[in-house]
Structure formats: C-alpha cells, structure tokens
Computed example of a mutant assay.
Amino acid sequence: MIKILISGLTGFVGQNLSKYLLNNSFEINPISLRNLNWKKNFEADVIIHLAGKAHDTKKSSDTSEYFKVNTDLTKELFDAFLESKARDFIYFSSVKAVADEVIEVLYEDVLANPKTPYGQSKLQAEEYILSKEISQSKRVFIIRPCMIHGPGNKGNLNLFYNLVKKGIPYPLAAFHNERSFLGIDNLNFLIKEIILNKNISSGIYNFADDEVLSTNQLVEIISSVANKKNLSIAIPKSIINSLGRIGDLIKLPLNSETIQKLTENYRVSNQKIKTALGVDKLPNTAQQGLEKTIKSFINK
C-alpha cells in the first residue's frame, strides 16, 4: 500500500483529496508543520504539500506572513523530503505564482511575473525546489492549479450562487470573457494518476479543466441548477467602468479591480499533464464540475 503524507489535510482540497485517495486504497496520514516534532513521523512514499497561506482578497494580511508560510515552510518540508526515503514530492503552487493577468493562454513555460505577495511567495518556493539537485530515485512535481471548486468550497462561486438565489441581477453581461476552472474531481484524478504512473517525469504542470467558460455562462449554469431565472443585465461597458471609478473613490464593493476580476480572461492550458498521462480528456467537463459544486450549495 502506498503511504502518503499530506500537509494541509484539513483544508478544502486536503479533505476532498484525502477522502478520494483513501477510497482508492492509499494510506493517508496528516502532517502538521506547526507541530515542532513533525519530522519524527516522516515516513511515507509520497509527500503532498497543500498547506499554505491563501490569497487575501481584502489585503489585510501582513506581507511577511506569506513568505513565512508559503516559502519558508515549503523549504523546510522539501529539505526533509530530500533526506528521506520518500520517492515523490507534490507541491501545490498556483497559477498566480507566475501570472496575475493572462492575455492569451497560460502555459508552464511562461516568464513568471507575480504582482502579489501571495504569488511572489509561491514563486520563491518553486524556485527553491527547482534549485536543488534531485536523486534519480525521486520525482518532484510543482502543480499550478487555477481556481479550484467543489463541495465544501467557500470561495467566489458561493458568492455568485447567493446572488442568483436572492434574485440579484448580474450587471456585467455586456462583458464576454473566458476563464479556466478546476473541479475537485479532476484534481483528485490527476494526483492519483501522477502517483501511480511512474513514467511521468518531474516538472511543472498546470491543472485546469478542459473547457473555458465565461462569467455569463457561469451565471447561466448557477441559475439552471438552482432553478432560478437568469436575471443578468447588459449595462453598457462605459457606464460600468464609470461606476467602477466612483467605487474606487468612495470605497464601494463594485470598483475597478472587482470589475476587472469578474470580466477578465484567464485561460490555462492543461495539455502538458494530459500528454504526460496519455489522455485526451479529463473525467469531468467544466460544466459537470460546476454543476456538482452548485448542487452542494443547495443541499447544504
């Protein structure tokens, strides 16, 4: 039986991934980097490093905290891996470690240029990992997921769902964008395949669903699953942008940054990992994954 140590097991991804791997006959144990004695029980075949400080959209976090958690703790754990008998190290970084904006499509070989402390701290951890010489008996994977969702997730999708449920119109339908998402089921599948397939080489891999969706399509999916009328309205872009500038001045939730985040393109290629696995498609479409997530909000 393959033994797996997971940091950050109690988080959204950790809970879903550990349950999935247990159901597929892996042995799962948590590792808490806050416990000063964590190195004493460092026996495993695979280390999955999920623990980290998430991006704070309210910008209230101390910048140094990102580097203490996302960079320094990753260095400690990776050094312990190098000295251990474990064969695989899987580090969950983020697409935000390399790009806050994506004009065309994000590939793994992009020149990194993160603008936030979150992205910069993740990138520094990546750079440390890549700077080390790795034994031929070991493999090291840097995973860059895009926006992850699934049952138990409390992120932006939940906010969208609550807007639709309350009958509040989505006012930005005049904007068309294309975004990548990552359903938790596809993430779980990819991690299992990486662990089991010894032919997959060490490296950096983007994780994303196969299809991209616009925010308008997202609202349509939520409305359909929630059995609510889609009340989206296409207010002219010039008016929306003016409202955003007003929001900047008097600190409203609808400001220029919010509008950009809701309407920007962020397309992520998953072709490298699919080629490595020898698959044409992931188990779930982007729409199937989102429908499952929305249903979990309804049934909660």
Rank of each mutant, 00 (worst) to 15 (best):
W38P: 13
V219T: 13
K192T: 11
E126I: 12
L73E: 13
I246S: 05
L262R: 06
G247D: 02
A125N: 00
T263Y: 12
N162P: 05
V225S: 07
L190S: 15
E133M: 05
K192C: 07
G152E: 03
R87A: 06
V225T: 11
G14L: 11
T74L: 11
E193A: 04
E108L: 04
T215A: 10
I184N: 00
H149W: 04
S131W: 04
K261F: 04
N241T: 01
E43K: 14
N241P: 00
I259Q: 03
G52Y: 07
P169A: 11
Q15S: 06
G119Q: 11
E211L: 04
K166R: 06
D280P: 03
E43G: 08
F42P: 15
I191S: 11
P30T: 14
R144H: 12
R179Q: 08
S25E: 04
K138W: 15
K96L: 09
L9I: 12
A51S: 12
I250R: 09
L111I: 13
H176P: 00
S121W: 07
L163P: 13
L33H: 14
V13L: 14
S32T: 09
E257H: 09
T74C: 14
L231G: 04
L290M: 10
G52T: 06
I129V: 05
Y128L: 02
L73C: 13
N162R: 14
K237V: 01
I103W: 13
K138M: 14
E193L: 06
E126V: 09
T57K: 09
K228Y: 02
Y107I: 01
T285V: 11
Y128N: 01
K198G: 05
F26M: 01
Q287N: 04
F12R: 05
N188E: 10
E257W: 07
N35S: 07
Q217N: 08
K154S: 06
K40C: 15
I28L: 02
K115N: 00
H55Q: 05
S137Q: 11
R267I: 07
I142G: 08
I90W: 09
S121R: 03
Q271I: 14
Y66Q: 01
A80S: 13
N265P: 00
F189D: 11
P151S: 03
N270A: 07
E257Q: 10
S296I: 03
F207V: 03
